[in-house]
Every structure is written in structure tokens, then in C-alpha cells.
Computed example of a mutant assay.
Amino acid sequence: MRLLLPYAGPYDWQAMLGFLARRAIAGLEVVQGEAYARSFELDGQSGTLSVRPGPGEQLDVRFQSAGQDLSPQLIGQVVMRVRRQFDLDADLQRIARELAGDELLQPLLRSRPGLRVPGAWDGFELAIRAVLGQQITVQGAIDLAGRLVALHGRPLACGDPLWPGLSHVFATPTALASADLAALGMPRSRARTLSGVAQALLDDPLLLEPKGSLQQGVQGLLQLSGIGDWTAHYIALRHMREMDAFPAADVGLLNAMATLQGQRPNARQLLARAEAWRPWRGYAAQHLWAAGG
């Protein structure tokens, strides 16, 4: 099936694709040419989808389910998830106007007018990615995620000849709650956090869903063992789509500020500086990450 999903305003597709390419998990995601492709499982149906630029201000989305007809409900879920993952509902012109009052951000906004905040396909998958990324490099986290998918994900029921690299769907909370994740090659404390997140989601299926406010969403996550402020805000930004979320202790943000203003702040100083960027601190963060390379 093919759908064209509209968005308004500029779209920096190369920035979005570059972000996804650097974080693509082997067996689960592929970036090739202008397209991003991934496997998925929804309502017991597995399949593949691809996203690339379409005509005009639209993204071209193509997806199929393994040997089954696509129900209207499943199609609706795919559309919702793609719109969230690719930030299609952002009013970038409004956001830019409100952030442009800050002299530090003005040149960043001018140089990347179509920069959007990448979202997540699935909340559980994003939470596991975030925990894997604690205190290690992006590449290190992706390598761990690839091993996790290979060992605990489920083989894709029907492969897509257009995307032979897609071989598995992501592991379920049930699979990870009881797995020996330390065997993947990580500290046992982090393995316990991963299993704890999986069990918490089994106990409360709405755990990762958006709450009434950013504070409520973050506070719920902080109650989980091994989840700190950085991880909670990262999940809130990319999955809950709380656009004022701001992981102030992020090394990339601190380094970007050092480059832009000549002095590296600490997390508390950056948090105070970011007060001027409310309620769009997440977009400010994305511009800082992009500026820092």
C-alpha cells in the first residue's frame, strides 16, 4: 500500500535521514539512498514500511503486511506512527519565530529552517534504545541493540525483497523481562534496568503514553530504577512528543554550547539558559545537536 502524508513548511529530509542512518539497528532498519525502511509488528501482524520524500510537501510511505490484508485500524496506526516519528505536524514557522528572539539560536534557525525533532516508531523500542545509550557512544548503543534484536527479536514472518536487510521485528516486553540481557555485553545494572522497564510496561501498558504534562510524564519514568533525568527527558521528547523536554546533562548539548559561546556550561547552567527557549526547548536542543555535529 502507498500513502502520501502531507506536512507544512520546510523539511530538512537529509538531516532527518542522517539522524536515522546513524542509529539504524541491523535487522530492524535500513537507510538506502533517500529512503528509510523498517520492519514492524502491530496487532499481531508483521510487515515492512519505507518512507521517502514525495511530491510537494508530502512523504511517500509504502508498507505491506506479511501475507495478510491490512485492516483500516492497522493502516491508521501506521499513519499515526509515521507522522509522530517524522514530526509531520510541527508548525516550524511558529516555532522559529518564538525561538528567534534568542541571539544564540538565530543563526542556527536560519541555517536549518526545516530541522525537525525525530520521533520514535514505538515507545518501548525507544525506551530500550535510550537505556542502551546511557554513558556510551551512539555506535556502541546501536551495536548492543543489534545484538539484542538478533537474540531476542522475532524473525520477520515474510521478508521484503526490496529490503533484504530487514530480518527481525523488535523484541517484546515479555521477551526482555525475563531474558539474561547482561549476556549482550553490558553492565549487569543496565541489564536490570532494561528488564525492569520491560516488566514495568507489562504491569502498566500506559506507562509510556503521553501524560497531562511534561512533568507528569517525566516523573512517571523517574520512578523506574536506573532511569535518570537524561533518559526520562529523552523518552519524553522523542516518544511522548513533549516538545519542551530538555535533557540538560546531555554531553552533545554541553559541547555544542561550548562551541557556540566559547565556554562549556554545566547542566544546571544550561537548564537556566534554556528557560528562554520554553515551550520549545526540544527544538532548541535539536538545533544544538545539529550544530555540534
Rank of each mutant, 00 (worst) to 15 (best):
L4K: 05
G9A: 04
Q14A: 14
A15V: 10
L17K: 01
A21M: 01
A26Y: 04
V31F: 08
Q32G: 03
A35Y: 04
G47L: 13
V51E: 06
V51I: 12
G54Q: 07
E57W: 02
S65E: 07
G67E: 07
L70S: 11
Q77N: 06
M80A: 14
R81E: 10
R81F: 08
F86P: 00
L92W: 06
L92V: 06
I95Y: 12
L105S: 06
V117R: 13
L126W: 10
A127E: 09
A127K: 08
I128D: 02
I136T: 08
V138T: 14
A141Q: 05
D143P: 00
A145S: 13
H152E: 15
H152A: 15
L156M: 12
A157G: 15
L166C: 12
S167L: 15
T174P: 00
A175G: 09
A177Q: 11
D180W: 00
A182C: 02
M186W: 00
R190E: 08
R190P: 03
S213C: 09
L214E: 13
G220V: 14
Q223A: 09
I227Y: 01
A236L: 08
A236S: 11
E242W: 04
M243W: 10
P247Y: 09
L254K: 06
T259E: 09
L260I: 07
A267N: 02
A267L: 05
R268F: 03
Q269H: 01
R278Q: 12
Q286H: 06
L288N: 07
A291G: 03
